[in-house]
């Protein structure tokens, strides 16, 4: 065997496990999903493995009448639109809350920083399901918030806080806020705060300093945080299930339902791929829009 051949073999052996893992855990499942999405479905809910069909994709936008004609049905699109909207809202609220928190954390002493980072990650120590149940206790009609407000005499009737879009947005923000705080914190923490002094020295007031110096330098962290919040929020399952009370469905619940109760795997798979495409397209647009800033702040 030649020397070059040996090298190639050696490299193949080194990279092999990683390739195997990616193949087994990413390419095969995705391929399987894509395959199923193009299969037919029999009346009992089984997948017709030998029948090619685009029925699942047609179903995303149309409803088949009894006589076989197609009628436009945007109900699924509404759910997807609501998912995008709620995820976007979650991202914006997380950014609005997370940025000042990250800024506060990054400007503390080294000792305090460690404590604060620990506190931000503290919710991860308990199960997401449990934490969402906790929000039910807070938000329900006779929950902590409503009973406190009624006791204070601010309201006489309980506010409808649970089982609506508001509850889902609150729950999602709560669940994903640390994913916003931590990347921004890490980019601010690396920042040289003498730059802030330099900015003050050059006649920039606080607001101008934040806008012209701190935000541009925190930008990579902000982008990372937005992606880390938006993407998992879009596919959220537990939070809309519990806090939306089945009325505020998101795309994750819809997909779950297709694989479960509805027994329509091809449609579930098509929804999953649609969600994937949605995420990839929005990330692509995002990267394109902010490429310059991201490279500039390295």
């Amino acid at each position: 065997m030649t020397r070059a051949g040996k090298n190639t073999l050696f490299r193949a052996l080194l990279i092999g496990p990683a390739l195997l893992a990616i193949t087994c855990f990413m390419i095969v499942p995705l391929g399987l999903m894509a395959y199923i999405s193009f299969r037919g479905r029999d009346y009992s809910g089984g997948v017709l493995w030998d029948q090619f069909s685009t029925e699942a994709y047609v179903r995303l936008f149309f409803e088949r009448e009894l006589d076989g004609t197609l009628a436009l049905n945007l109900n699924y699109m509404f759910i997807i639109l609501r998912s995008v909207w709620l995820s976007f809202l979650t991202m914006v609220i997380s950014l609005a809350v997370g940025l000042p928190v990250a800024m506060f954390m990054a400007t503390r002493d080294r000792k305090w920083k460690a404590v604060l980072v620990f506190m931000v990650t503290l919710p991860f120590w308990t199960n997401l399901l449990v934490r969402n149940y906790a929000w039910i206790l807070l938000l329900r009609d006779h929950g902590t918030i409503n009973s406190t407000l009624m006791w204070l005499g601010i309201i006489s009737e309980p506010l409808p806080l649970l089982h609506n879009a508001f509850a889902v947005a609150v729950g999602l923000t709560y669940s994903f806020l640390p994913f916003m705080v931590l990347p921004i914190y890490s980019s601010l923490e690396k920042m040289d705060f003498r730059l802030v002094e330099a900015s003050f020295d050059l006649y920039a007031n606080r607001w101008q300093t934040i806008r012209r110096v701190i935000l541009p330098l925190a930008f990579p962290g902000i982008v990372a945080g937005c992606v880390l919040v938006f993407v998992p929020a879009l596919g959220a399952y537990i939070t809309p299930e519990l806090l939306g009370g089945g009325k505020t469905l998101m795309i994750g619940n819809l997909i779950g339902f297709q694989f479960g109760g509805a027994r329509n795997w091809p449609f579930g798979a098509a929804l999953g791929l649609f969600l994937l495409a949605l995420v990839l397209i929005s990330l692509g647009l995002y990267a394109r829009r902010y490429r310059g800033e991201l490279e500039g702040s390295q």
């Binding site: 040289d192 003498r194 730059l195 002094e197 330099a198 900015s199 003050f200 020295d201 050059l202 006649y203 920039a204 007031n205 110096v213 541009p216 330098l217 500039g296 702040s297």
Partner: peptide, 20 residues
């Protein structure tokens, strides 16, 4: 007066130039 209202400017030891 805060620093941004003082008509003095500083050359910092490590320059503190804006990297972006």
């Amino acid at each position: 007066k805060p620093p941004y209202q003082r008509p003095v400017n500083t050359v910092f030891q490590n320059y503190a130039l804006f990297p972006h």
